[in-house]
Design a protein around this nucleic acid. Structure first.
Length: 651
RNA sequence: GCCUCCAUAGCUCAACUGGAUAGAGCACCGCUCUUCUAAAGCGGAUGUUGCAGGUUCGAGUCCUGCUGGAGGUACCA
């Protein structure tokens, strides 16, 4: 049973007698901010007192007279301006612990009104090298899906793979012009990836070459403007005018800086090609940019050769992706990529046109919506469809097939506006029953404070990062467990290494951008998965050493004992597992569960320091502590499991 | 220009959506292993929550303005 929910349900009738918005007030009953105030606190009296014109303290007293917390709270007090502090009854707590001990679900009740959720996550582009930025959607989406499922919802996961985009035009062009047949024979994906990078580089080169003079001119112009503005500033005396000029100066400086950065990156791209081996090839393929677009267009129109190549490339690319997913332990119910929707796009566009939701503007078919300056384009003027079109088709397909109550898109926050438009368009189209939600997450930044990009050579790809995480964990695993077999050591290293990597993404508020740090990704100390996993392994050690049988512990429990304060503290935290899951689902924030597990583990390690199991003063206390250990190990295992992180018996 | 998000300890981040004295980890300095795994525990300090106002019993959180950063902004995804 969820203690918070139980307290709230006891408050509800009393609050209803004082206010019409009792349900809202329930949100003001929450875990106590400080243990000295008890376990929970109700902050309802302050706003309510104001509303009904009573002193909050009097009202709090009145509420407490009317309420029945019999058997649930042993102590209540009104404090400060009108806080109601609540302390759980120890007998009630012990009963809850016993109930959780006997329950596979650790006392977490299933929701009474299960819904169907589609969780759309990961969605990488195949055939493009994956980097560390791609891991975020995958682990966050996976965790949200698992948690939704655990609390009793029906969950359908779908990986909306990018398997139909321009990158295939590039690879096809590369295949036709630069293929190394031997390399392709022995390592097809590696060769395709090389072709992708090469074509990308040549396109960037020609793009830079074509635009660099323009950028130089712009820089000159901006520089001139800046001089003028500065002269103006010096000649102006009136305050508001000076302020205005200052603002323009700073805006101009900003633009100038941006242009200079562009210039630098152009220069880099040009030198990289001209001083390298690519120079002659660059000259031989001056029209590579348009050529690639033509290859892509041909593919989309069903050109036999390109389609055959695409069919040849795709399985290998997908298999390469699956290797990463297998290592991450992530799987999907569906992997309906963009190509899957290809033959449905025309119908979507026709429908929008027929119903008058879209009209042609500047040659493109556009959906105009009130809240936006720019329309959502669903067909380009060259007749090609876009991401938006595919997304609309996906909405329709999912509605036909799955009839979900909600659809969550776990995607980078840079696509915020795209999704706002998409959801509006979907509602316009008639999909008003489903709740669409963009579960956005922050960008992974490089150490320069700019979005993380794979730079050639000096950054590890995703696979390499996983290797490093495992090999670093392996060193410590060998050091710590010299007697274990090599196989076991490797298994431990994999669980610890991968778990640590995932935990970095999960433990942060998903909304924040975060700075990629190699050290942080591979850290095994502090607030990391390793810390949590270690508590589990410790418990397994205790169970081994004491010769206890976990099944027997659960089947024949003794009453829990609180011989020390820390045991009660641990008890309170353990029964809050269910609250932590609720907290995650309010805003789909897995870091709420990480924070819970971390705090729980901190308490647990203090418990271990203070409370010997083996040398407990009495047999009954020893049993009680074994029961704590069992509950703890299952809470960690389940909690980490919901985050997609495994545990090991020994480490 | 317009729109969205962000600014918290030296660093990386939390803060249960308006609650009581803003918390962790990292890094740094000590201490604790013949006693269930030291991948642990204990102790040590650091803050005008970017700036200026406002709203109220109460603001890191809400509103206004400013400064600084990131992203988006008609045919990329």
């Amino acid at each position: 049973m969820n203690a918070l929910a139980e307290i709230r349900s006891r408050f509800l009738p009393v609050l209803e007698s004082h206010s019409d918005s009792a349900t809202e007030l329930l949100g003001m009953i929450r875990p106590a901010g400080d243990p000295k105030f008890g376990d929970y606190q109700a902050n309802v009296a302050m706003p309510l007192g104001k509303k009904v014109g009573k002193s909050p303290r009097d009202l709090a007293a009145e509420i407490m007279d009317a309420i029945s917390l019999e058997g649930l709270c042993s102590n209540t007090e009104v404090a400060g301006p009108g806080f109601i502090n609540l302390t759980l009854d120890n007998a009630w707590l012990k009963n809850q612990l016993l109930a959780s001990l006997a329950d596979d679900r650790l006392g977490v009740e299933q929701v009474t009104n299960p819904k169907t959720y589609i969780v759309d996550f990961s969605s990488p582009n195949v055939a493009k090298p994956m980097h560390v930025g791609h891991i975020r959607s995958t682990v966050i989406g996976d965790a949200i899906a698992k948690i939704l499922g655990f609390v009793g919802h029906k969950v359908i996961t779908d990986n909306h793979v990018g398997d139909w985009g321009t990158q295939f035009g590039m690879i096809i062009y590369g295949y036709k012009n630069f293929l190394d047949p031997a390399a392709y024979e022995s390592e097809p994906v590696g060769e395709l990836s090389r072709l992708y990078r090469k074509v990308r580089q040549l396109i960037d080169y020609h793009g830079a070459l074509a635009n660099i003079d323009g950028v130089r001119t712009e820089i000159d112009t901006l520089g001139g403007q800046l001089e003028q503005l500065k002269a103006q500033q010096a000649a102006t005396e009136e305050k508001s005018a000076v302020k205005k000029i200052k603002k323009e100066i700073s805006a101009t400086q900003k633009r100038l800086k941006a242009k200079q950065e562009t210039l630098e990156s152009f220069e880099k791209k040009i030198t990289a090609v001209e001083t390298g081996e690519l120079a002659t090839e660059a000259n031989a393929h001056p029209e590579i940019g348009t050529a690639v677009l033509l290859e892509t267009a041909a593919l989309h129109k069903g050109d036999a050769q390109n389609l055959a190549l695409w069919n040849e490339f795709l399985p290998a690319c997908r298999e390469d992706m699956q290797k990463i997913y297998r290592r991450l332990g992530v799987s999907f119910d569906h992997e309906l990529g963009e190509s899957f929707y290809n033959d449905q796009l025309q119908a979507v566009v026709d429908d929008f046109e027929a119903k008058g939701f879209a009209r042609t503007s500047d040659g493109a078919l556009c959906v105009f919506m009130n809240d936006y300056d720019t329309p959502m384009i669903i067909r380009k003027k060259d007749g090609a469809f876009l991401y938006s079109t595919t997304d609309l088709a996906t909405i329709k397909y999912r509605d036909d097939e799955f009839d979900a109550d909600a659809c969550l898109y776990v995607v980078d926050h840079r696509q915020h506006e795209h999704f706002e438009k998409l959801f509006d368009a979907a509602r316009l189209w008639g999909y008003t029953e489903t709740e669409y939600k963009h579960v956005a997450f922050g960008t992974v930044m490089g150490d320069d404070g700019k979005p993380f990009k794979t730079r050639d050579g000096d950054t590890v790809g995703l696979g390499g990062l996983l290797d490093d995480a495992e090999s670093k964990a392996l060193k410590i695993a060998i050091d710590q467990n010299p007697d274990l077999s090599e196989e076991r050591q490797k298994e431990i290293a994999s669980v610890i290494g991968i778990g640590g990597l995932k935990y970095v993404d999960l433990s942060q508020n998903r909304a924040s951008d975060y700075e990629f740090s190699y050290e942080k990704m591979l850290a095994l100390k502090g607030n990391t998965a390793t810390y949590l996993q270690f508590s589990y392994a410790r418990i397994q050690g205790i169970i081994r050493k004491t010769g206890a049988d976990p099944t027997a512990i659960r089947k024949n429990p003794v009453p829990f004992e609180f011989a020390t304060d820390i045991e009660r503290e641990l008890a309170v935290k353990l029964i809050r597992f269910s609250e932590a899951l609720d907290d995650v689902l309010v805003e789909y924030k897995p870091n709420m569960l990480c924070a819970y597990l971390f705090e729980l583990t901190q308490i647990f390690f203090r418990f271990l320091e203070q409370c010997s199991v083996k040398d407990a003063q009495s047999e009954s206390l020893k049993q009680s502590r074994l029961q704590f250990c069992d509950l703890m190990s299952r809470t960690i295992q389940t909690g980490l499991g919901l985050l997609g992180i495994e545990v090991v018996e020994q480490m």
